[in-house]
């Protein structure tokens, strides 16, 4: 089973006077089961909008979304459909604190998620919650803590654990590690690698940072102002970028020989080419 997205389009009509924002213009891709796709682009390029449409939190103007053979283009009707869709796609949000209910402890949040996902009894929900904590390597002593008592990396792992409760086929991660420092980032990426290997979860990994994306995805799609400017294997996007915009993103990845002036120069070049 796979994820097939065709011609996804969304335009936000802002307040009077302001020009409408084209957040997605015909975005199409396929992620095979267990596969992974990186969605990169600068701030405002429409990454979150595409992610939210696939998750079903935003309704596309045009295009279609199929996951596990179900058409998710229209909103779900009824409890049964809602729970079925929950087992297709889950999402980890950009803001790990805001995405957790601040009233619930880690254990309460995960047991609730397990119950909603269909745990048969309170015991089943509890053991599932413990399983989920293990899966994301959350220490046992965090179970009784509230979100405000957790570190950023722990919060993000709770969010991932909660997303896994329904055993989704596709996990969307919107800037899931962007706010974390490098060592914690590495831990979370490890967890994601394991999940792919063990549970066969497909990943849609959204980030503005091509460097992070390259560490987890096989394919990369580059968005510029809602339009898909490049879509190829992550290898070739990194080493043989075709589009000038992609070349700029690649140059912006920190590492050996990183030169901010070159990035600025590439950006100018790209803007000239975009104008002509």
């Amino acid at each position: 089973m796979s994820t097939e997205v065709v011609g996804l389009t969304k335009t936000f009509t802002a307040q009077r006077g302001a020009a409408p924002v084209r957040a997605a213009q015909g975005v199409s891709f396929t992620i095979p089961r267990g596969g992974s796709l990186g969605l990169v682009g600068e701030s405002g390029s429409g990454k979150s909008t595409v992610a939210r449409m696939i998750a079903g939190l935003e309704r596309p103007d045009a295009g279609s979304i199929m996951v596990d053979g179900e058409d998710r283009t229209r909103p779900a009707r009824g409890g049964l459909a809602r729970r079925r869709r929950a087992s297709q796609v889950q999402m980890v949000f950009q803001d790990p604190y805001g995405s957790l209910d601040r009233r619930l402890t880690v254990d309460q949040a995960l047991r609730h998620a397990a119950t909603v996902a269909g745990a048969a009894s309170t015991q089943a929900a509890s053991s599932r919650a413990r399983e989920l904590m293990d899966a994301v390597r959350l220490p046992a002593d965090t179970a009784s803590k509230h979100p405000r008592e957790l570190s950023g990396g722990q919060r993000q792992r709770v969010a991932i654990a909660r997303a896994l409760a329904s055993r989704p086929s596709l996990l969307i991660l919107d800037e899931a590690v962007s706010a974390l420092d490098v060592s914690v980032q590495a831990q979370v990426l490890d967890v994601l690698h394991e999940l792919r290997a063990e549970a066969g979860v497909s990943l849609l990994f959204v980030s503005h940072d091509l460097g992070v994306v390259s560490r987890i995805t096989e394919e990369t799609l580059v968005l510029y102002r809602g339009a898909q400017v490049e879509h190829a294997s992550t290898e070739s996007v990194l080493h043989d970028p075709q589009h000038p915009y992609t070349r700029m993103l690649v140059a912006a990845v920190p590492g050996e020989g990183w030169d901010p002036d070159a990035v600025v120069e590439l950006r100018r070049e790209f803007e000239r080419s975009a104008l002509s």
């Binding site: 079903g56 929950a86 889950q90 949000f93 803001d95 995405s99 601040r102 909603v116 329904s166």
Partner: peptide, 22 residues
């Protein structure tokens, strides 16, 4: 508009339940 509400939606919790219980 807080993302935890979106998270409950994605889990399949009914809108009424999200409003009243959370």
């Amino acid at each position: 508009v807080r993302p935890y509400v979106d998270a409950y939606r994605l889990q399949g919790v009914s809108p009424t339940s999200i409003a009243v219980r959370f």
